[in-house]
């Protein structure tokens, strides 16, 4: 059985179907990009994966476990906004990734010191070591999202959910964030679901690109049917996983 499995998911709000017949099997370590038009249910699907909402029908299982009733530490998430805690310094935000599951949400004594050291190491790795004592409001948008990802990963989730994480960033910062995410995945493989509006971003980062759309469409009542996964592209090797376009010259590279 696959790592993440969504079987026959239906979701409707007030009788309006949003998603219908969504089936998905994902292996551990895959990066899934989710694209689609506005209002096609891709964010709804992410909330279902997050267990923030329960599907009207069907079930989502991670590692064969019982479907979760509420968000928990096996799922990490980064939203477009509000993903870090504004009242904590950058370092405290990273520590929170580990300490929030403690009874009082804090470490004490030696554990506190160790957590601090781990957090500082994390901050160095994600390039935020120089602003460890600053508050998130003083950081740029890209740094805030980097912090949010670092914080989510500090909790060691089994899957990472990204809801348009780079949507509010300028193009240059966005490219830097792509590299950042690629490096993180190269260092430690993880299963990622990313909702994005940007097709190129989806194909660049994803191993698979899922397209959500409505297969049935009633022009007199556009809300009559829900969306489902209409395409499931293999996006490895620039979306051309089976053919090699570059000629294999069998000559050592001269450059």
């Amino acid at each position: 059985m696959s790592f993440v499995s969504a079987q026959n998911i239906f979701q409707s709000y007030d009788g309006r179907p949003i998603l219908e017949r969504v089936n998905l099997e994902v292996d551990e370590g895959e990066f899934i990009s989710i694209v689609g038009a506005s209002g096609c249910g891709k964010s709804t699907f992410l909330r279902l994966l997050l267990a923030q909402e329960q599907p009207s029908r069907g079930a989502i299982r991670i590692g064969g476990a019982v479907p979760a009733a509420e968000p928990g530490p096996d799922r990490g998430v980064v939203f477009q906004k509000y993903s870090v805690f504004p009242h904590m310094s950058v370092r405290e935000n990273i520590i929170a990734g580990e300490s929030f599951r403690r009874p009082l949400g804090r470490f004490f004594g030696a554990a506190k010191k160790a957590a601090r050291a781990r957090a500082d190491a994390t901050l160095e790795r994600i390039g935020l070591g120089h602003v460890a004592d600053a508050y998130p409001a003083t950081l740029s948008g890209g740094m805030q999202q980097r912090l949010a990802i670092g914080q989510a990963l500090a909790a060691k989730p089994r899957i990472l959910l990204l809801d348009e994480p780079f949507g509010a960033l300028d193009p240059g910062t966005r490219l830097a964030m792509h590299d950042f995410l690629t490096e993180l995945r190269a260092a430690a493989p993880m299963t990622v679901f990313m909702v994005t509006h940007d097709l190129a971003e989806g194909f660049k980062l994803g191993d698979r690109v899922l397209v959500f759309d409505k297969p049935r469409w009633d022009p007199h009542d556009p809300g009559a049917y829900g969306a489902t996964i209409t395409y499931d592209f293999d996006a490895r090797d620039d979306g051309i996983p089976f053919q090699t376009i570059k000629e294999v010259a069998n000559v050592p590279d001269q450059t």
Partner: peptide, 10 residues
């Protein structure tokens, strides 16, 4: 989002 984030941190 912030509450959900805290939930996902356990």
């Amino acid at each position: 989002e912030m509450i959900v984030k805290a939930e996902t941190l356990g």
